[in-house]
């Protein structure tokens, strides 16, 4: 499985020279499966540049949305394959008793927020509630489960052969819970992330910042790492960077996280931090990373 990060920022795009290394685009991760099929996790602004990198003759595209906050769907309207008649795009996301996935996304891709409507997109696009049971896309078995965030939000576990990746970019499992001591059956996201080869997880705040943001749906370093430790993740990629966090700030945050992980008894090499355009290729255990320097592990 190959993983490429196209947007690691949370909340709102944060461009600027002080953000160059980690990038300013919001959540979007590309997975290339062993079958060659592409899966896209979330459609933040990073999906725009991802779209330009895809082969023009790639017809079938699957997008898994964790939730519909703007930082996870904002790029959809600017995703180049949406404007090709040959594209067949399937979008999966959380269900809601209130309205269909298409109707909820159309609130964004419609006037006055957008110059085009969903029905005007030339591609063949379909919207699907993420199934309650595992389903298959190409070589991948996918499971979606509700996790603790504000509003209906999913995490995903993608298994390709004996390799598993868990993607929970927005998650506050420690809210009102003693993560360190709580029985695992009471930990949000536990089933999804258990023994994952790679856990891509929310780490929006430092521990010092968190008290001012409790209940906002995101995790501080300690909660992220405690969660990673409880689920037995083999490697963790810190994700969903706060828009105020500059490159140098994130370097410090990464160092703190690695120290904290070491204090928990782990190997600091297991803790990476997501940077735009970074790539990881792994089979079971992550192996060579063509953009290793940008992973900053």
């Amino acid at each position: 499985m190959k993983v490429r990060v196209w947007g690691a920022r949370g909340s709102v795009p944060a461009p600027g020279p002080e953000m160059n290394r980690y990038g300013g685009n919001t959540s979007c991760v590309e997975l290339t499966l062993s079958s060659g099929e592409t899966l896209i996790l979330d459609a933040g602004t990073g999906i725009r540049t991802l779209g330009f990198s895809l082969p023009p003759d790639l017809e079938r595209i699957n997008i898994l949305l964790t939730h519909l906050h703007l930082d996870h769907i904002q790029g959809l309207m600017f995703f180049p394959p949406c404007f090709r008649a040959e594209s067949n795009i399937r979008i999966f996301g959380p269900s809601s008793p209130e309205a269909s996935l298409e109707a909820r996304i159309a609130r964004y891709i419609s006037a006055p927020l957008s110059p085009v409507e969903v029905r005007e997109l030339p591609c063949d696009v379909s919207f699907h509630d993420a199934p309650a049971t595992e389903w298959q896309i190409g070589a991948a078995t996918i499971r979606a489960e509700a996790i603790t965030h504000r509003g209906p939000t999913l995490g995903y576990r993608i298994t390709d052969g004996d390799t598993s990746l868990c993607y929970i970019p927005d998650h506050e499992p420690g809210l009102g819970a003693d993560l360190e001591n709580l029985n695992e059956e009471w930990i949000s996201g536990y089933n999804l992330a258990r023994d994952a080869d790679l856990l891509i997880h929310d780490c929006q705040y430092t521990d010092e910042e968190y008290p001012g943001h409790e209940g906002w749906g995101h995790s501080p370093i300690t909660a992220t790492l405690t969660f990673a430790s409880r689920v037995g993740a083999k490697r963790t990629l810190l994700f969903h960077h706060d828009p105020l966090h500059t490159d140098s700030f994130l370097d410090d945050l990464h160092r703190s996280a690695r120290r904290c992980w070491e204090d928990l008894g782990g190997n600091p090499e297991q803790i990476g931090i997501a940077a735009e355009r970074a790539e990881l290729t792994f089979e079971g255990q992550p192996s060579a990373a063509p953009a290793e320097a940008r992973i900053a592990v």
Binding site: A146, T148, A177, E184, W186, N191
Partner: peptide, 8 residues
């Protein structure tokens, strides 16, 4: 098994 989110 992990409890449903609403119970958590």
């Amino acid at each position: 098994p992990q409890k449903p989110l609403e119970l958590i």
